[in-house]
């Protein structure tokens, strides 16, 4: 099995938030929004995760405008998309198998 999986919740949502160019603060906000405030990424957690995703080449630096000191934006790579969908497949299998429990709830 792919030893990159399962993804942590933080990594999963960061990948999702950089499907289009996004910067640090934007990632924190979007993740909080789409999870109804359940997943709030600490800036230290995000910083560490971004650096590890960059070194794995799952995301890349999209823009770094030195002159205007614009915020750095990140974008998912092909590898990142691949890993993301592998994880989605794994999650779908979990949900599919969870149906065996139906009737007990």
């Amino acid at each position: 099995m792919d030893n990159n999986l399962p993804l942590t919740e933080a990594i999963f949502y960061i990948l999702l938030a950089v499907r289009k160019p996004n910067h640090g603060y934007g990632i924190i906000q979007e993740v909080s929004e789409i999870t109804g405030g359940r997943v709030v990424l600490g800036p230290g957690t995000l910083y560490g995760a971004i650096n590890s995703l960059l070194s794995k080449k799952w995301i890349m630096l999209y823009s770094e405008d030195m002159a205007s000191r614009k915020k750095k934006e990140y974008l998912i790579t092909k590898e990142g998309i691949e890993v993301f969908f592998k994880e989605v497949k794994r999650l779908e299998e979990l949900v599919r198998n969870a149906k065996l429990m139906e009737g007990l709830a």
């Binding site: 942590t8 919740e9 933080a10 709030v40 990424l41 600490g42 800036p43 230290g44 957690t45 560490g48 995760a49």
Partner: peptide, 8 residues
């Protein structure tokens, strides 16, 4: 909080 998950 700087770190919000157990791993970090």
């Amino acid at each position: 909080e700087m770190y919000t998950d157990i791993d970090s």
